[in-house]
């Protein structure tokens, strides 16, 4: 019973973070048909920026609850700076090129960002436990959880709802949907496709950064976290279907709970279980659970 509760709660917690990162990845793919291998680095960037801002804020001795604002601000600022920069300078020249070229370019970006972060923050791990410890704990069905973990789940949920409302309800959201469906037609309808790309990529970067910043108080922020993030986020979007937000949510839950179960029951093959599920999904639904079959062109 206790194990089941742990698996469920841990799983949902993993899923919350994974969803944020994967939602960004899938959004960017949906709009510009580019799978950003450096997406994990944007997650790491958010984690570093959020952590640093909280550490700086705590030194000023301001009221403690505001540190959560600092955490979020770090992620948003990092994404808002890195997003347009990367999209304008690096991705713009390669739209419409072969997928291989696009993959190689975002892989180059991954390599560059890894070292940029090492130069900015060094290689020693950062810990910032204050946001985590500050809220205290709660006991659920005999298992002690930090309020922060529950808060994280709530924030991810709210972000998901907000993003999906924004896509349906705002002008920008509708433009994103239009560009996703057909770039050429959108352009003839007078939509500034270039601007939509910049905004969508920036939104994706901010989502990744949010995931990183929110999870930062639970982990040690160090080189290497970006690699793990991109590999897991990829599994999530493949299971859910590349380009689908609902798919990212479902995929995140599947991966999150699988991973939590594996950690409890078969710790040796934790990562392997996630991929075994991914392979199983692909065998039966080659484009993922919510994936669309690409229409064939002559």
């Amino acid at each position: 019973m206790t194990v089941a509760v742990v698996i469920l709660l841990d799983g949902v917690l993993y899923a919350a973070v994974l969803f944020l990162v994967a939602a960004g990845l899938t959004l960017v793919y949906g709009v510009m048909r580019i799978l950003n291998i450096a997406h994990g680095s944007l997650y790491a960037l958010g984690a570093y920026a959020g952590t640093s801002l909280v550490l700086v804020y705590l030194k000023t001795g301001g009221p403690a609850p505001l540190m959560y604002l600092a955490l979020l601000a770090g992620a948003v600022v990092a994404g808002a700076i890195a997003g347009p920069l990367v999209e304008r300078l690096l991705l713009r020249p390669i739209y419409g090129r072969e997928e291989v070229v696009q993959l190689l370019v975002t892989y180059s970006l991954f390599l560059i960002l890894e070292d940029v972060m090492k130069l900015l923050w060094g290689v020693d791990p950062y810990y910032v436990a204050k946001p985590y410890a500050f809220l205290g704990t709660v006991t659920i069905a005999g298992v002690r959880y930090a309020w922060y973990q529950l808060l994280l789940i709530a924030v991810a949920l709210a972000t998901g709802v907000l993003v999906s409302l924004a896509i349906r309800g705002t002008r920008l959201g509708r433009m994103i949907v239009a560009v996703t469906a057909d770039r050429e037609i959108s352009a003839t309808l007078g939509i500034n496709v270039g601007r939509v790309y910049t905004l969508a990529f920036t939104a994706g970067a901010i989502l990744a950064g949010l995931g990183g910043a929110l999870v930062a108080p639970l982990i040690s922020v160090a080189p290497g976290i970006s690699v793990e993030a991109i590999v897991l986020a990829f599994a999530v979007v493949v299971i859910g279907g590349l380009g689908s937000l609902e798919g990212a949510a479902l995929g995140a839950l599947i991966v999150g709970i699988t991973r939590a179960a594996a950690v409890q029951l078969f710790p040796e093959i934790e990562l392997a279980t996630v991929y075994l599920i991914m392979v199983a999904v692909l065998l039966f639904r080659p484009r993922g659970l919510f994936g669309e079959w690409e229409t064939r062109r002559i």
């Binding site: 690096l90 190689l104 370019v105 892989y107 180059s108 390599l111 560059i112 890894e114 070292d115 090492k118």
Partner: peptide, 15 residues
Amino acid sequence: FTWQMTLGVTMLAII
């Protein structure tokens, strides 16, 4: 500290 970055920049330049 700049080895990967060098690789990345070189690869971009080549591509």
